[in-house]
Design a protein around this nucleic acid. Structure first.
Length: 502
RNA sequence: GCCGAUAUAGCUCAGUUGGCCAGAGCAGCUGAUUUGUAAUCAGCCGGUCGGCGGUUCGAAUCCGUCUAUCGGCUCCA
């Protein structure tokens, strides 16, 4: 009481608030000279340990992290025991900034934004669109192998559809508002997710237990009115395309289906060299169960299925209580960006809610009606976010199979332009994506420019090559790697691509 | 949405306390050069200084507002 009174006298209402909020009754203090602080600790024994200090930024932060509370100014600083360590850290930050997908996306002309089009609405440029198309084709071929069927649904749906799904009640006010038509009272919504449309496809005909599981996949573009301050490059946008699919299965198939989805995600991550991901299982809050819908029994089944599936696949998971969606538990795959910020990529979610709301059914072997379970899954999360993270992981040096321009041919002078274009035609006919840099520049300049465009291979052609038919090959970032005939080089490239996709 | 900052040519950035026609490098165009493994030279083109409004004899510069971006907070079906 005495201490609290002390802070009250000083008018330090936040310290008073903290003391009042302490549950265990033990209050610890730290002293630094004549400065006394209420703190759980630990503190440094004395400030002499701090040798190198830098203020990094100043920003607003809500008191106790709650949006309803007042906002205070938070000062971010960093300190190291030696100046040298601080300098190294700052240099590392600078390096990380060079990998920022917003910077590389601009440099490599992958995507852009326009304030006229609107905040958070990315415009994919030709090279970015080609990259994305290749990723989509890759995913489509994987999904085909795993028994997914493609579906296509419109970008809007009647408001009623989302009233049925429950999303209108939960997010309607904070979303893009309904689209009106000349017809009185008619309202449509831009789709914020694909599930309701897919549920309607499920309902388009009667289902038997023998038909399940049914797996519907779609690259579905959705629109969500994210808070303006939360938008960030391609990682958080207002219009994006999910590599979405919904699996409708019997309760007894849930675990097996869940494991298959984990397999797909792991295969995709492996192919793209994503090794440093973490996995998180999100379950219900241990105490407050009021915010979740569905029966306790179903939740338990689903949560057990996820935990066991992860165990069987040997995933090192972190379990977070209270992080589940209101309709079911989920498993998320997270990766860090260049600056160490965490982003959720792949997600697998179990849903008992939508089958209920849409009254989805199948006829069981007992000739009675049963309710299927739904799994939402998106290995990339969204094409936008995935491409962003891929850019930062590779610093723009995409795998050979994925990159738009695989080979650049550099004639040493204009005399060899025709020769270069002939090679290009031959390589393109062998499915090697090739360009010719026939600008009137010196070879050194062309090498430099094409290195910076991150083109994996370069071929320098001049008098020697024209006579011998042997091409001088250069690898991005490494330099000359030897001489090859056109035929051998084409084979070399296709072998590399095949290895990457193995 | 909230706190703080920023917005000058296609890109990266200069532009002193308000003061002649707003500058540079790169990119682009034209010409010269005909080039051998990370930048050849010269000339030219290019800007409603983010939009709107205000203060002033005078605004890229000061003020207001809107839009967008950046760093956080909060949020993320």
């Amino acid at each position: 009481m005495f201490i609290k009174g002390n802070y009250s006298e000083k008018g330090d209402e936040y310290k008073v608030d903290l003391i009042e909020g302490l549950k265990d009754g033990t209050i610890t203090f730290y002293e630094q000279g004549n400065f006394t602080d209420l703190c759980r600790g630990p503190h440094l024994p004395n400030t002499g340990y701090i040798k190198a200090v830098k203020i990094m930024s100043i920003a607003g932060a809500y008191w106790k992290g709650d949006e309803k509370n007042k906002q205070l100014t938070r000062i971010y600083g960093i300190s190291f025991p030696k100046k040298k360590l601080l300098d190294e850290y700052l240099a590392m930050l600078e390096e990380a900034k060079k990998r920022d997908h917003r910077k590389i996306g601009k440099e490599l002309e992958l995507f852009t934004f326009s304030s006229r089009v609107g905040q958070g609405l990315p415009l994919w440029l030709p090279k970015g669109a080609m990259l994305r198309e290749r990723l989509e084709n890759f995913l489509k071929s994987v999904q085909k192998k795993y028994g997914y069927e493609p579906v296509i649904t419109p970008h809007i749906g009647q408001k009623e559809l989302y009233v049925t799904s429950g999303h209108y009640a939960k997010y309607g006010k904070d979303s893009f508002q309904p689209i009106h038509t000349p017809a009185e009272g008619e309202e449509f919504l831009l789709k914020p997710m694909n599930c309701p449309h897919h549920c309607e496809i499920y309902k388009s005909k009667p289902r038997s237990y023998k038909d399940l599981p049914v797996r519907y996949a779609e690259f579905g573009t959705v629109y969500r009115y994210e808070q303006s301050g939360e938008l960030h490059g391609l990682t958080r946008v207002r219009g994006f395309t999910q590599d979405d699919a919904h699996i409708f299965c019997r309760p007894d198939q849930l675990k097996e289906e869940f494991i298959k989805v984990i397999d797909i995600v792991l295969y995709i991550f492996k192919t793209l060299d994503f090794e440093n991901f973490t996995t998180q299982i999100s379950l219900r809050d241990k105490e407050d169960r009021s915010k979740y819908i569905g029966s306790d029994e179903n939740w338990k089944k689903a949560e057990t299925a996820i935990v066991e599936a992860c165990k069987e696949k040997g995933l090192k998971t972190v379990i977070e209580y209270g992080e589940a969606a209101f309709y079911g538990p989920k498993l998320d795959f997270m990766v860090k960006d260049a600056l160490g910020r965490s982003w959720q990529l792949g997600t697998i979610q179990v849903d008992y809610n939508l089958p209920e709301r849409f009254e989805l059914e199948y006829t069981g072997s007992d000739d009675k009606k049963h309710r299927p379970v739904m799994i939402h899954r998106a290995p990339f999360g969204s094409m936008e976010r995935f491409v962003a993270v891929l850019i930062e992981h590779t610093a723009g040096k995409f795998p050979l199979w994925l990159t738009s321009e695989q080979v650049a041919i550099l004639p040493v002078s204009e005399k060899f332009n025709d020769f270069a274009h002939n090679i290009k035609t031959k390589l393109n006919n062998s499915d090697v994506r090739t360009i010719v840099d026939d600008r009137n520049e010196k070879v050194g300049k062309k090498i430099r420019d094409n290195e910076m465009k991150r083109i994996p291979y370069m071929i320098i052609v001049g008098e020697k090559e024209l006579e011998s038919g042997m091409l001088s090959i250069r690898k991005q970032g490494e330099g000359e790697i030897g001489k090859m005939t056109i035929e051998n080089f084409a084979k070399f490239i296709s072998q590399r691509v095949a290895e990457e996709l193995k």
